[in-house]
């Protein structure tokens, strides 16, 4: 039940961020589903004790690949799908704890949260890189397969 709730919340949050950055109406639903699917992937990694960093990596690879497929299907730029779907992976909680502990003078904890933020952000960037590789591979294979 909690899992279904989390997936529904991921869909709603992606929809909300899509409204803020004004993506076209026809793209909202697809972006929401990408957000839900990748958050599902993240939850699976969490269920196997994979940790937040690995979860974010898997999630951002999924976002990159699915957005590129959606972009080809909907004939729209890929950023329309991957920026809103990424919103649930932003390390907002850790970034806040980092600022809070720096402000309160707990530098040891603050540095620990800073490292977490850096690692999650790095994992997301690396995930995009891997997704780009997969996308090129998919394009190459479909071209070979067709001709």
């Amino acid at each position: 039940m909690a899992v279904v709730g989390q997936l529904a919340l991921a869909y709603i949050a992606v929809l909300g961020f899509g409204l803020i950055i004004n993506i076209p109406h026809q793209a909202l639903n697809v972006a929401g589903w990408i957000g839900t699917l990748t958050w599902g992937g993240y939850l699976i990694v969490q269920a196997f004790d994979g940790g937040v960093v690995l979860g974010s990596l898997i999630g951002s690879v999924g976002i990159g690949v699915l957005s590129s497929l959606a972009a080809r299907y909907k004939k729209m730029p890929a950023i329309i799908f991957n920026i809103p779907s990424l919103v649930s992976f932003v390390p907002g909680s850790q970034a806040y704890q980092m600022v809070r502990n720096f402000a309160l003078g707990n530098y040891r904890q603050a540095v620990s949260f800073t490292l977490q933020v850096v690692m999650i952000t790095g994992a997301i960037a690396l995930g995009f890189l891997l997704a780009e590789l997969l996308n090129r591979l998919i394009t190459f294979c479909t071209l070979r397969w067709r001709y």
Binding site: I12, A13, G16, F17, I20
Partner: peptide
């Protein structure tokens, strides 16, 4: 949109 992002 902002309301949908912040709560969930």
């Amino acid at each position: 949109g902002a309301a949908l992002v912040s709560g969930p």
